[in-house]
Design a protein around this nucleic acid. Structure first.
Lengths: 330, 330
DNA sequence: ACCTCCCTGGAAAGCGATTTCCCAGTCTGC
DNA sequence: GCAGACTGGGAAATCGCTTTCCAGGGAGGT
């Protein structure tokens, strides 16, 4: 393994000079020596040891992103946005997946802290469990105390900069739009009760119906994924419009209806939330609430990197997109 | 920032003892001291500095994965498989996305080398450009010379352990299956000519048709993504069956047909390649060649970590899955 | 009893960079 | 022509941890 010392010796200069040439510095180095060093580094195939640099400099150029599941397009979009932003800043990215285990999330933050990463991004919904959220908060606080920066996408519960999607409001607006089509009997495929994103969307939807003087929706809990939507859809009774709290659940519901010969939107209307790009060619096209996921990821990174003192919470509005999975009824 | 020295002082032991207690060692430490150290670490909130550990140990517990695009479900599945495998080994993951720029890929390998990561995984198709492949090879060789391990998923061109999907054979088998349904006039949405995965699939398909004594397909080149499939589908003339060299292109093609009122599979049959999970509820269900992507990712990591000397190339067969996007014709 | 041998604990030498000093030479202004 | 400011170069301290080496004490064998 070629070290800087090897390069310096080969070039006949000191370690200091070699370092200044190759790894940047405020100080100048004469053109002659500079060329010698560069040639030596090239000949030897020198690659700086980043661990050593990190140690010496006391800071790294790595950021960490923690998501639940990379194969979920929601997180993939978020992570992609953040990674593009990171790339423009010359930062490297460590990605951790928790597969929805909050303990893993805490463990990952600890590990990223140990890595002395420049910033940590937490994407993904919080759970209602106060104890576990508290421990995550503590771990994050410890990281920030030692100079780390952090941000999160989701609920503002961690005491860090947050990009908060307007889940309640978006779901409410969706409810009003659907009611505007004449629907009165609704069902909500509500996901797990302890998952805050799911709960907020469900609650926002129900609240809007209440304001409109419409009957409360049938609420069906279950997993937050495609199969959860599939299973929940089978329990719906007597609704003309079904709201799944995310798009992949909505797709599961559509699949369940298709199998049973229930036509969408003729027999029942279905809507989701997120506007996942991969689903843009789904048939029927899914009515949903669009969230600018990639932007949110990028924005979260910006917030994390930003030096400002007070903790910032930024709300991101969703936009209702009506497509063919819903129809007006008499 | 709390250092090991702080902990040692607080516990009243030497640096060496503290290190042995907290960060593992072959050596034993007496129960009394051990407890004191652990308590001190806990009170102070000590987190080992991994950069320092990496430097001192000369090896890290990080692996690198380089993919083209995380929002592409193909790469997400591959990366997810590799990340699960990494997690069971206690390894951390750095993910880099190149957005299909080969230069970025080379740069990322250099960076991962600088990080002294334990292993590097390259996922994603090679390009036909010899020069750029050569430079990537060189960079990889330099990394391996200094003790790094590497593996790749795709074409065996880099001189490293490889998990090679049987693109040619899979496409050939698909062609035979489709011919078995009575099709004789084919079109291939072939993707970019320089992308080897695309080229292999296209060639395998054409070769099988030739063997069967059928006319050569119409070959249409274009981008390797959904929009590429969409655009290419519009140029198809006079084929009863269209093979898109990956699933997302096939979805684009289906969208194009739907818009133009061409019914699938009644008017034209469509098939893809990969069997992307996210598309499992697509209508019509897509005929494709299934690749065990998550397993391939995990297997690639295994190969990379494995110490064996000779470079291993493992072929992975695809499985033809006939679904409703194709039909038998007279 | 005596001599190994094993075990535990500590001192100190790295790991590969960065960066602070210090030094000598060159410019500049007067 | 000279003091003072600048400049480019090198020696060495430093970052936080691991690990070798050494020392001392107790166990076990004869």
């Amino acid at each position: 393994m070629v070290t800087l010392e090897d390069v310096a010796r080969q070039a006949g200069v000191s370690l200091a000079t070699a370092s200044r040439v190759l790894n940047g510095s405020t100080r100048q180095v004469g053109a002659g020596l500079r060329a010698r060093v560069e040639r030596a580094a090239d000949e030897l195939g020198y690659r700086a040891n980043i661990a050593a640099q990190t140690l010496a400099r006391g800071s790294s150029n790595v950021i960490g992103i923690v998501v639940h599941d990379l194969t979920d397009p929601y997180f993939a979009a978020l992570a992609d946005g953040a990674m593009r932003a990171a790339a423009t800043e010359g930062l490297l990215v460590m990605v951790g997946t928790t597969h929805r285990d909050p303990e893993q999330e805490i463990a990952y933050v600890a590990t990223l802290n140990a890595q002395r990463v420049r910033a940590v991004l937490l994407a993904g919904s919080r759970v209602a469990d106060q104890a576990v959220t508290g421990r995550l908060r503590d771990e994050l606080a410890r990281y920030r105390d030692s100079g780390g920066r952090a941000a999160c996408v989701g609920q503002d519960l961690l005491g860090v900069d947050t990009v908060a999607p307007a889940n309640r409001e978006g779901a409410g607006e969706l409810a009003r739009a659907l009611a505007g089509l004449g629907h009165t009997r609704f069902a909500v495929l509500a996901g797990p009760p302890h998952l805050m994103t799911a709960a907020d969307r469900s609650a926002g939807f129900a609240a809007a119906l209440r304001e409109l003087g419409l009957p409360a929706p049938q609420v069906i809990h279950g997993p937050f994924d495609r199969d959860g939507g599939y299973a929940a859809a089978r329990q719906v009774k007597d609704a003309t419009c079904v709201f799944a709290v995310n798009d992949v659940m909505a797709v599961g519901a559509l699949a369940a209806y298709r199998e049973r010969g229930v036509r969408v939107p003729d027999d029942v209307s279905v809507a989701g939330f997120d506007d996942i790009v991969t689903l843009r060619d789904h048939v029927p096209a899914l009515t949903t609430v669009r969230l600018p996921l990639a932007d949110m990821g990028a924005r979260a990174l910006e917030l994390a990197l930003n030096e400002e003192e007070p903790v910032v919470v930024e709300h991101v509005a969703g936009e209702v997109v009506l497509r063919e999975s819903v129809r007006r009824i008499a």
